[in-house]
Computed example of a mutant assay.
Amino acid sequence: MNIRNSTYNFQNVTNGAEAELLRLQEQAQMGWAKEFRTLKQFGLEDGMKVLEAGAGPGFVTDLLLEHLPHSEITALDIDDALLDEARSRLSRFPQSRLKFSHASVYETGLPDNYYDFVVARLIFLHLHNPLQAALELQRVLKPGGKLVIIDVDDGVFGAVTPEMEALPGILRKLAQQQAARGGNRHIGRSLPRLLSDSGYADVDMEAALQHSDLHGMEGFKRQFDINRFSGFYKKGIITEQEYEDINTSYTAFDRSPDAHAMMLFFMACGTKTV
């Protein structure tokens, strides 16, 4: 697979590389405590061999290394520029603890039956063939190993106060545009079925809720960065009126002393049986 087989391409982000890295960093860190708690509930333990599929610039990798001090972590990504960013950021960790793999989630090139646990965070929504990816990750897991997919569903993404009235319509258009390119921004609701269809057993699902009163407002503001929406307008995905409406709504949200927001991340787990 090359980068075009995914709907995410860091080189083409509309808000600029620096802002996108800050957005990804906030996105990884603000809900980590709850996500890690749920990962442990699903069976993640220190000392395991862990694969992070779609590691990107390494923000979650860093957290895994910090919280699993005796584990070997492999960070896999198809984008070598993002992996270079991760290598630079995580250079303090020895090779015995951290390995990098520049490969596709469809064809990782990693050994059979090697990993105890795989974490795939916010990658499956971008994949053209999620079933193939789930099967490949199953191949590299040991029997009894776990795959946890952490992803979104824009149909139940969360809530924002003051309400952004244009946002639901814009999210529908973004989901339609991503579906046309092969992705799925509603994949959260399909994760249990995806795991079952891939042959995983003991499928379970939880939700990790991020709230600005608990995790801070900065991360939410980066998710609604108006520069991201300007790119969608320039590409013709949203109309000029929709862009003006979301800009007005974001300004009110940004300035309101009563502003708050929440987002849902869905976490589905399956076990390799053979």
Score class of each variant (00 low, 15 high):
249 S>L: 07
33 A>V: 13
235 K>V: 03
239 T>C: 11
7 T>C: 09
205 M>F: 12
64 L>I: 04
186 H>S: 01
251 T>R: 10
174 L>V: 05
171 L>C: 02
84 D>Q: 15
83 L>T: 05
180 A>T: 03
156 V>P: 10
59 F>G: 00
63 L>K: 06
177 Q>D: 12
202 D>L: 11
124 F>L: 07
14 T>I: 10
218 E>Y: 15
264 L>M: 12
174 L>S: 00
264 L>V: 10
209 L>V: 15
151 D>Y: 01
39 L>Y: 06
126 H>A: 05
62 D>T: 01
166 A>H: 06
231 G>S: 05
9 N>L: 10
99 K>Q: 08
207 A>V: 09
61 T>K: 02
13 V>Y: 04
142 K>C: 10
223 Q>A: 11
274 V>H: 15
11 Q>R: 11
6 S>A: 05
128 H>I: 14
206 E>I: 11
3 I>P: 08
244 E>Y: 02
143 P>L: 00
159 A>M: 13
114 Y>N: 14
221 K>N: 08
190 S>A: 11
151 D>H: 03
214 L>W: 15
10 F>D: 13
45 E>D: 06
139 R>C: 11
269 C>W: 10
135 L>T: 08
226 I>A: 13
200 Y>M: 01
172 R>W: 14
227 N>M: 14
209 L>C: 09
7 T>V: 12
73 I>S: 02
140 V>C: 13
72 E>S: 13
200 Y>N: 03
241 Q>I: 10
79 D>F: 00
234 K>S: 07
47 G>F: 05
73 I>L: 04
